[in-house]
Amino acid sequence: MMRIFEGLRFRRVESPIHNLDPRSKAVFLVVLSSLSILYSDPLTLTILLIIQVPLVYMARVIKFWLNSLRGSAFLMIFIFIVNFLTSYFYMGGFTVDGLIMSLSMTVRFITLIGAFSLFFLTTTPDDLSLALEKLKIPYDICFAFTAAMRFVPDIALEAQSIMDAQKSRGLELEKGKFMDRIRNMLPILVPLFIRSFQRSMELAEAMESRAYGAIRKRTSLCELKMSRKDYALITFSILFMLIVIFVKSF
C-alpha cells in the first residue's frame, strides 16, 4: 500500500530539471497534456512521448520514470483491449485501422502518465507550495495543501496501526459479502477521521503559538526565481505547441 505514496515523493537528486522552477515545468506539462488530448494520430502522440525522454534522462530519474510506467502496465493493456474490442464492434471485425487506433489511445495514456510522473518526480512538494503562493493563492490554502502532503505518510501509518488493532479484535477485512466488507471499513475509517480532527486542533494550537496570523504579509525563507533555463523551457513549450498546431492544421 505504501508504494502508492512512493510516487508522491520527489527524489532529491541534483539535476538541471530538478532545479527548474515548478511553474515552467507546469507550463511544459500543460502543453504536453493538452496536445496529447487534442490529437489522436499515432505519429503526433509518439513524438509527444519521445520528447519527454531526453528530459527524463537529464533529470536522472529514468529508473523511477520507467517504474511508474511499469506500474500502470495493467491499465495500459486494459485500455488497448477495450479500444480494440470497441473497434471490432464498430467496424465489424478486426481491422488495421482499429489496431492503430487502439495503439494510439495506449500511447496517449503512456504519454500522459509519463508527463505527470516526470513533473512530480522532479518537483519537491515544497517548491509546489511555493509556486502556489507565487500564483497569489491565499496562504491559508497553500498551507492546507502543504500540510496535507506532509501528513499523508503519517495518515498511512495510522491506517495501518488502526487495521492492526481491529484485526487483533477479530475484525476480518478480507471476508464476507460486499455489504459486509463496506461495513467492516467503519472501524477503520472512524478512528482515522477522529484522529484527523484531533490533529487539526493540535496543529491549530501549535500554529497560533508560533504567531500565525500576526501580520497579513508573510515573508519567506525560500523564494522561487525564474532563471534563463526556465524562460527557455517556457518559450520552447509554447513554440512547440504553435508548431504542432500549425502543422496539424494543414
Binding site: S161, I162, D164, A165, K167, G170, E172, P187, P191, R195
Partner: peptide, 22 residues
Amino acid sequence: LSVAQLSRKVGLVFQNPDHQFF
C-alpha cells in the same frame, strides 16, 4: 492460522487507544 483465529488466544493491546475506538 488467521489473525482472527490467533487473536482468540493471544490478545494484543496497542499503544494508542485513539487508534481503535469507533
